[in-house]
Design a protein around this nucleic acid. Structure first.
Length: 885
RNA sequence: GCCCGGAUGGUGGAAUUGGUAGACACGUUGGACUUAAAAUCCAAUGGCCGUUAAGGCUGUGCGGGUUCAAGUCCCGCUCCGGGUACCA
């Protein structure tokens, strides 16, 4: 068969589409279900790049394999289509963002279909579709109507929240604000990052460490604006502990754990001298209280003004003003040099009643813990640095566990800082009754907390880094909030029946005044009148892009349901996602937010599992070769010439070094999947994406590699497609053994997502078959079946050529016949003192002493023994023989 | 700084998890076919020594160690990539 890949691929893509070969049925009778999900893409204007199909091909191989294994497979695709570029385009041209978005979706869909991926296209979803975002809005309403019951560790409907009697007695306003204070979604003033270039607020995590907006690179500033926030920290503990049982890469779990940032310690109360105020601090080291020599408040702390004494007032006020105005950019820039001011007040250290000064410094953050710390310079690096600069006392209370005598002495003298374990010294006080001298850290912490709790001076506490999630954006192209702000200052949410709240068509998409979204210009849409005649205004913010992607995996289960977000029965059948494949760039945000929403829906009994994604796999990044001169200057790929495996500058002739870099327009090394498919076909494209290396590794694209797999497909077509090479003769044992070994290997490799080695074993088998020049029909049919997940078009074509009428997609995966895997003999590598000297073929059932005799009896052995008697002979059956002399 | 990865031929990468290092593929070289080229096919291909051959030595970022045996385990580094940023 001549390998006419274009024809073959078009033919089968049409066939699959026409016959709905990959339609997933809600077949509740079949208990074997497999839900395999790709992270759906944002359909950008530049189309698919070679990175997208890497994960998609991997999931497709798995999906096709599982179908052959008898699973009912759910394998859907959709579009995460709200996003900035479409809105920017609308601003520039006046075109509605939906128009450009739909165009981009069309391109993506066409490109994905060209690769021959086995999606159930009847389940396609688009986050910008009102039929979809109706339910995104619905989830927001659920969040708003949910509070977190700390006792039950569970989200519950707001109607089940008991309002304390003393609140009730104070009137409706108090009740309302009490309830609002418990909702998972709340509307409040928040100090937020503002990007004046995008005219939008950004979530903390969208601000890069250099203080610039990740979307545009413009520096951000702080602003106090009313925003929707979600109380994700309430779920911190469950988000953390839920990770343990997930089959996710450990690195990703670690990232989430770090992001959640749990730390255990204690809250301790310090009385301020004279004023009667109490400063509460969070510390992970209550055991070091005896070493606390000063305290620090964050500049934003509520007590700063009260604690500042007259003569310090001017200085303090200036410091606070500067600090608050400083962007995080400046704060981190100045991280090396800490600054602060003394308030003039003193607090009392509860363990020894000593007076310690209260300072204000911006190295203490307002959003974490209580926004105030006790400083223990002898045992905390930051405090030590600060104490040194402002000449505050350093009191060592722990004899370090170290062999470094110099360090030990310096620490004991308060001239060095020790943060590890040790034995307490100077840690007792007769009057207060606390004594931990001689103890180690673990016991010290325990004993101190007990002491604090018994005197009501503090209590054991847990803190999380995870902050409330800023959930609104000043954009047009996002889900509108189903919210009305009434003129009396109250808020109400739309009824479910009023959903979806669609976006109004605008004439222009420029942002509104005072940091409002373009929706502020949509007067007709914006203003509403209530039944009682009260005037209201709709929320002009929209939801962030995360919203749509937070729950899309649930909608795939029942994408056309207009009555409910999804049928519970179907959800119970399909969930959880068995395998989720996507890029590691979503390690924290998308996956954490998504888990959060899922847990809320679980608590409200909409979903049947606590976690959405059982197994997660991150594909690596696809990079490209790039070239640079000796001085490190990058040279665009079109100016590079290859001669005998070396690289030269086309113009200057200078020799260049090949490096690996991200694909970029400036380096002219971007690869378009369309070109590759045009030249080598979709099967070769798929195969190469998988053959490059391990799925989770980052690796460079090399077109020469595509040629390699293309050659493989050509050889397959030539041999297995030439019916004169496919005989009815009895198959040789050699081929059968190789075939069954290949089935086993491919099966194992697919299960473990090691597609590169699976392909390699398919190649090895093909090389053998080509060498033989012919195979029997059963062999050919078996081979084509295991080739199918990788190169489905060619496999279907061959399958048809063997006289089959039905698509290969629903055929059974071939079974391994163990008979062909058993070997009687093994060619042992024989080593002397660990060095391989010769090989010796021996029966596998030979006894060890017989093996010894056979080895020592071999004439080649005498040469290495040199007359010595072996001290030991190690025999590992079927593996190796090592003679120790 | 801290937390995760990673480093194997000229290149992408294999190596049953402690047991034959370099599978498979690219590239290169030589050969066949061709008027020629492309395509295809065959052979060789880690480095060094050995005229050939037989064979030997050496070799998985660096330095130590454990073991009959280390790419794989342990200790100490170097470099590269990702995440994070004073989290008390």
């Amino acid at each position: 068969m001549e390998y006419k890949f274009r024809e073959i691929e078009k033919k089968w893509q049409k066939y699959w589409e026409k016959n709905k070969t990959f339609k997933a049925f809600d077949d509740f009778q079949n208990p074997k279900k497999y839900y395999i999900l790709d992270m759906f893409p944002y359909p950008s204007g530049s189309g698919l790049h070679v990175g997208h199909p890497e994960g998609y091909t991997a999931s497709d191989i798995m999906a096709r394999y599982k179908r052959m294994k008898g699973y009912n497979v759910l394998h859907p695709m959709g579009w995460d289509a709200f996003g900035l570029p479409a809105e920017q385009f609308a601003m520039d041209t006046g075109t509605h963002p939906a128009i450009i978005t739909n165009k981009n979706c069309d391109t993506f869909r066409r490109q994905i279909k060209d690769i021959g991926l086995s999606y159930d296209w009847d389940r396609e979803i688009n986050t910008t579709d009102p039929g979809y975002f109706k339910w995104t809005q619905w989830i927001f309403i659920q969040l708003y109507n949910t509070w977190y019951d700390e006792k039950l560790q569970k989200g519950r409907h707001i109607n089940e929240l008991e309002v304390p009697a003393d609140i009730k007695s104070r009137g409706d306003d108090y009740v309302r604000s009490y309830i609002d204070g418990k909702r998972l979604a709340y509307y409040d003033k928040a100090l937020v990052w503002w990007c004046s270039s995008c005219k939008i607020v950004c979530a903390n995590e969208e601000v890069l460490t250099d203080g610039s907006h990740e979307k545009c690179g413009h520096p951000v500033e702080k602003m106090n604006l009313k925003q929707w926030m979600l109380r994700i920290p309430l779920y911190a503990e469950r988000l953390l502990s839920g990770l343990d049982d997930l089959d996710w890469p450990e690195g990703i779990k670690d990232q989430q754990r770090n992001w959640i940032g749990k730390s255990t310690g204690a809250e301790v109360k310090f009385h301020v001298e004279n004023t009667g105020d109490i400063i509460s601090v969070f510390t992970t080291r209550p055991d070091t209280l005896f070493g606390a020599t000063y305290m620090v408040l964050a500049p934003e702390h509520e007590l700063t003004a009260r604690l500042t004494t007259g003569e310090k007032e001017k200085e303090v006020r200036k410091y606070i003003k500067d600090a608050v105005l400083k962007s995080d950019l400046d704060r981190t820039d100045l991280a090396k040099e800490k600054t602060g001011v003394f308030t003039g007040s003193y607090a009392i250290n509860p363990v020894n009643n000593k007076k310690i000064p209260v300072w204000i410094a911006d190295y203490v953050l307002t959003g974490y813990g209580t926004g105030a710390i006790m400083a223990v310079p002898a045992h905390d690096e930051r405090d030590f640095e600060f104490a040194l600069k402002y000449e505050l006392p350093v009191e060592c209370i722990m004899n370090p566990d170290t062999d470094d005598q110099e360090l030990k002495e310096k620490t004991l003298e308060g001239k060095a800082c020790w943060t590890e374990d040790g034995t307490y010294v100077n840690s007792s006080d007769k009057k207060t009754g606390l004594d931990i001298n001689g103890l180690k850290k673990e016991e010290g912490i325990k004993k101190t907390i007990e002491w604090l709790e018994s005197r009501q001076l503090g209590k054991a506490t847990v803190n999380y880094k995870l902050r409330d999630w800023l959930f609104s954006r000043q954009r047009y192209w996002g889900e509108p909030f189903p919210v009305i702000h009434w003129e009396d200052g109250t808020i109400s949410l739309l009824d479910e029946a009023e959903l979806p709240l669609e976006l109004p068509v605008l004439e222009k998409y420029q942002p509104g005044e005072n940091g409002e979204s373009p929706l502020a210009n949509a007067t007709d849409w914006l203003m509403v009148t209530g039944k009682n005649g009260m005037k209201g205004r709709r929320e002009t913010n929209t939801m962030p892009q995360w919203a749509g992607s937070c729950w899309y995996y649930l909608r795939f289960i029942d994408p056309h349901n207009s009555k409910a977000i999804f049928s519970k029965e179907k959800e119970k059948y399909w969930m959880p996602v068995d395998l989720y494949i996507g890029g590691a760039e979503h390690a924290v945000l998308h996956l954490l937010y998504s888990r959060f929403w899922h847990k809320v829906l679980y608590d409200l009994a909409y979903t049947s599992h606590d976690e959405p994604y059982l197994k997660l796999f991150n594909q690596g990044m696809i990079l490209a070769f790039a070239y640079e001169t000796k001085t490190g200057a990058k040279v665009p790929a079109d100016l590079v010439e290859e001669k005998e495996g070396r690289y030269f500058h086309r113009n200057t002739g200078e020799e260049l070094t090949q490096i690996v870099a991200k694909m970029s327009k400036s380096l002219k090394n971007v690869v378009n999947p369309d070109d590759i498919i045009q030249r080598y076909g979709a099967d070769a494209f798929r195969l190469y994406e998988m053959f490059m290396g391990p799925l989770d590794a980052s690796k460079p694209w090399d077109e020469k590699g595509v040629k390699g797999v293309f050659g493989f497909l050509t050889r397959v077509a030539r041999l297995f497609g030439d019916l004169s090479c496919v005989s009815d003769e009895t198959e040789s044992d050699e081929i059968l053994q190789a075939l069954h070994k290949t089935i086993r290997k491919v099966e194992n490799d697919i299960e473990n997502l090691r597609f590169n080695t699976a392909i390699s074993s398919l190649m090895i088998f093909t090389n053998l078959a080509v060498k033989k020049g012919k195979v029997n029909r059963d062999t050919a049919k078996t081979f084509v079946r295991i080739l199918h997940p990788f190169a489905p078009h060619l496999a279907e074509e061959l399958w048809e050529a063997y006289g089959n009428k039905e698509s290969l997609a629903n055929e059974e995966w071939p079974e391994v016949n163990e008979k062909y895997l058993k070997e009687d003999t093994f060619e042992y590598p024989v080593s002397f003192n660990g060095k391989l000297r010769f090989r010796l073929e021996l029966p596998l059932d030979m006894e060890n002493n017989e093996i010894e005799n056979a080895v020592l009896g071999d004439e080649r052995a005498s040469r290495w023994l040199e007359g010595n008697k072996p001290r030991r002979i190690i025999i590992v059956k079927g593996r190796i023989i090592n003679v120790v002399i």
